[in-house]
Design a protein around this nucleic acid. Structure first.
Lengths: 130, 130
DNA sequence: TAGACATTTCGAATAATTCCGAAACTACAA
DNA sequence: TTGTAGTTTCGGAATTATTCGAAATGTCTA
């Protein structure tokens, strides 16, 4: 199997997944830190990290490190990428993406540090992540 | 998990596969029978049938029965579907799609019945399908 | 009707993915 | 330096996907 196919297949695989699609749609609304994404989607940070790894490999998101935080966003220039644009356009229409955006609105009203500490505290009390 | 997500995820999964992508790219060149696709891609008919089932479920191909043959093609009106159009545009660029198109050119010079009998005969002689 | 043919479904072995807690790693802060 | 917070990697059990031959199904033809 030639290398190029694998590349397109891998890109498509990267978005053939509920959480990864939600992450992509969420980032369409703007840059966020990993822990903000985890809090918004109500998913463990390790799962978000793995989702982001795949999306990064596919060339769909980029990252920016700032201190101990990693901020991720949709790859700059995605407007010129018809495949990614089409996927984003569909992904943001999903009902769970709308819910995620609502929750993101609340999350982003708080400082990054506050959000992330909250997640940690909830986990220590045994609050489950659906 | 809401139904709509599953739908988009399922669509993307349907094309996250080397053979299914090749089938889609091949059909972009025009309608073909299942056995013509199998002969062109050098893949067993049962595998092609399964690939087509997924693509049909995703709404990417449609079929037309004519006697004992089933002719499949890219869903009519796909030009108005940005997601499918973007996927097709990438898929037809793949090197193996170019090779498939070359082989398809030879396959289509012959009558459908001839092509399919040939496949059968080859299999009886133990010629392997890569 | 019997037989050939195109296609689909089934079975089952093998491989790949998914998921999340635990542990490791890194940068900051006291 | 010690601790803490954010992130990533690892382990490995559970689930799901892939593959193709064999068998089943429906259609044509002699």
């Amino acid at each position: 199997m030639p290398a190029e196919t694998k590349t397109l297949v891998e890109k498509l695989k990267a978005v053939s997944h509920p959480i990864r699609l939600r992450v992509l749609a969420l980032l369409h609304g703007g840059e966020m830190s990993v822990c903000q994404v985890a809090e918004t989607l109500q998913v463990p940070p390790s799962s978000v990290s793995e989702a982001l790894r795949e999306l990064r490999r596919a060339g769909f998101v980029s990252e920016r490190k700032e201190g101990r935080w990693v901020f991720v966003s949709v790859m700059p220039g995605f407007e010129g990428n018809p495949l990614l644009s089409a996927i984003l356009a569909e992904a943001v229409k999903l009902p769970e993406s709308e819910m995620d955006r609502m929750r993101a609105g609340m999350v982003q009203k708080q400082a990054v540090a506050v959000v992330c500490r909250k997640v940690q505290a909830a986990e220590e009390k045994g609050v489950s992540h659906v």
